[in-house]
Amino acid sequence: MKSAVVLLPGLNRDRDMIAALTKISGTPPLTVWQTDTEIPDVDLITIPGGFSFGDYLRCGAIAARMPVMRAVAEKAAKGVMVIGVCNGFQILVEAGLLPGALMRNTSLKFVCRQVKLQIANANTMFTRRYQPGQIIRSPVAHHDGNYFADAETLRRLEGEGQVVFRYAEGTNPNGSINDIAGIINGQGNVLGLMPHPENLIEAAHGGSDGRALFESALGIAA
C-alpha cells in the first residue's frame, strides 16, 4: 500500500503524519505540494493538521481552492482513500468532499487535550480494526472543530452510517452537533476527523489507540 501526504503552507502536523505512516506501513509516504496538479498512484492520501494559509477567511477555505485539491478530488472520485485530520478535515469540507462545516468551538477557546472517542461505525475501510462502539483515546488540538450540518444532511449522515467517530459522553470539546468527531462521504472512501490519531500510535505517545485507523486503511494486520 502506498500513501501520500499533502503539504500546504501553514500546516504543522505534516511531520507527525509522515512519521506515523512510515512507522505503521514501513514505507515513507510520498509528499505532494499545493501547486501539484497530479498525484502519483497511491492507495491513501492524507491531509494533515495545522493552520493552512493562517486560517485566513475560514479555516481550510484557501487551501481547498489550491490546485492540489482538484487532484485530490479526482483521486477520491476514483475510489482512492483520503483522510483529513483537523485542518485536513476543515479543508475537505471546504472543498466539498465532505458535507457540513466546521465552526468556532462554542467555548470560543482553543482546546488542546485528550478526549474519548466512540467508534460509531466500525464497518468502514478506516475503522474495521476497531470494535463497534469501542471507546478509544485521542488528542485534539483545535479552535474550529464545532461540526455543523443542516437537518437534512444530518439525517442522511446518521441514517447512512456516515458518522464514524463521536466524542464519548461528556468529552465533546467543541459543541459539535450530535457529538460528531469524524465522518465519511457517501462512497465511504473519504474520512475527515478533528482528533489526531497520528499522535497516538506508539508507547512513547502514551498509547497506540490511533494506530488501528491507519492499519485499517493500509490493510495491515494488527
Binding site: L57, R58, A61, R65, E94, G100, A101, M103, F148, D150
Partner: peptide, 9 residues
C-alpha cells in the same frame, strides 16, 4: 459562491 462565503452556513 466559490470562496468568500461558505453557503452551508
Amino acid at each position: 459562491d466559490r470562496l468568500l462565503a461558505n453557503t452551508v452556513i
